[in-house]
Simulated scan of single mutants.
Amino acid sequence: MASAPTVAIIDDDEDVRDALCELLEVMGFICLGFDGGSAFLSEFSSGRFDCVITDIRMPEISGLDVIDRLRRIDSRTPVIVLTSAMDEYSRQRAEASGACAYLMKPVDDAMMLKALQSALAGSAFGDTDPHSDAG
């Protein structure tokens, strides 16, 4: 059997990072937290992470810049944006850069897990049930 998927969590808010890592670890994922884009990019290597979850507003390197840099070196790693940035520009830029999902903080655990499962299944065109949580 394949090993558990490894997920990178990039957020400058330690409480958010820790809570999300705890949730994902309970669900069977391997989770590594990073306090910003610089820390993540210095540790990144192609194939190391099965998915990246990033905040947008962070010091030094924004989550949008992380996505852009990641796309230049590895276009296959799925990215989920988890942010409090409600502006349409950020949403459109994340989408144009290939983000799989744009979720608002605080996010419901079930919604986060559904987005993560969909992102991980992306190579299979996201085999998800179109009737689940349709409301």
Rank of each mutant, 00 (worst) to 15 (best):
L113K: 01
L113I: 10
R72K: 15
M27T: 03
F125D: 15
R57M: 15
V107P: 07
A2I: 06
D65C: 08
D108L: 08
V79N: 00
F40I: 03
D74H: 08
I10V: 15
R71V: 06
Y102M: 07
R72F: 08
G47A: 04
A85G: 00
E88T: 00
D35F: 03
L113M: 14
D18S: 11
G47S: 02
A99H: 08
Y102R: 01
V107C: 15
D87P: 04
D133E: 10
D108M: 09
Q92I: 01
I61E: 10
D127M: 06
A119F: 03
I10G: 10
S3E: 12
P78R: 09
S118T: 08
H131S: 01
T77K: 02
D65E: 15
C31E: 01
Y89N: 04
V79S: 04
A19L: 14
I10H: 11
Y89P: 00
G33D: 09
V52E: 04
Y89F: 13
D15T: 11
V7Y: 05
S132T: 13
Q92E: 08
E22Y: 11
R48H: 13
T54G: 04
A119N: 03
D50H: 15
D68K: 09
R91N: 00
M86Q: 08
D11H: 05
T83Y: 02
F49K: 00
A99D: 04
L103Q: 03
R93P: 01
R57L: 11
Y89A: 01
I56T: 07
C51G: 12
S38M: 13
E14F: 09
S62P: 13
D129L: 14
A121G: 10
D74S: 11
A2P: 14
S75A: 11
A121T: 02
I30F: 07
S132C: 07
S38C: 14
A119M: 06
R69D: 14
P130F: 12
R48L: 15
D68T: 07
A99N: 03
Q117C: 07
S42D: 15
L24Y: 05
S3G: 12
D108V: 11
M112R: 00
P59T: 12
V16Q: 06
Q117S: 14
Y102S: 02
D133P: 04
R93W: 02
R69C: 07
F29S: 11
S62C: 14
A19I: 06
D68M: 05
T128W: 02
A110E: 08
V52P: 10
D74I: 11
F49L: 13
A39Y: 05
A39W: 02
M27Q: 15
F49Y: 15
E60M: 10
F40M: 09
P59W: 09
G122R: 10
V79L: 11
S45N: 07
M111Y: 01
M104N: 01
D35N: 15
A2R: 09
G28E: 11
G47R: 01
T77H: 01
D18R: 11
G98D: 02
M1Y: 02
D133F: 13
V26I: 13
A134D: 07
E25L: 05
D15R: 10
T128K: 03
A96T: 06
A39N: 10
A96E: 09
V7K: 04
D50E: 14
E88P: 00
C100L: 04
R76T: 12
D18Y: 10
D50R: 07
D74Y: 06
L20W: 01
V16A: 05
L116T: 00
R72N: 13
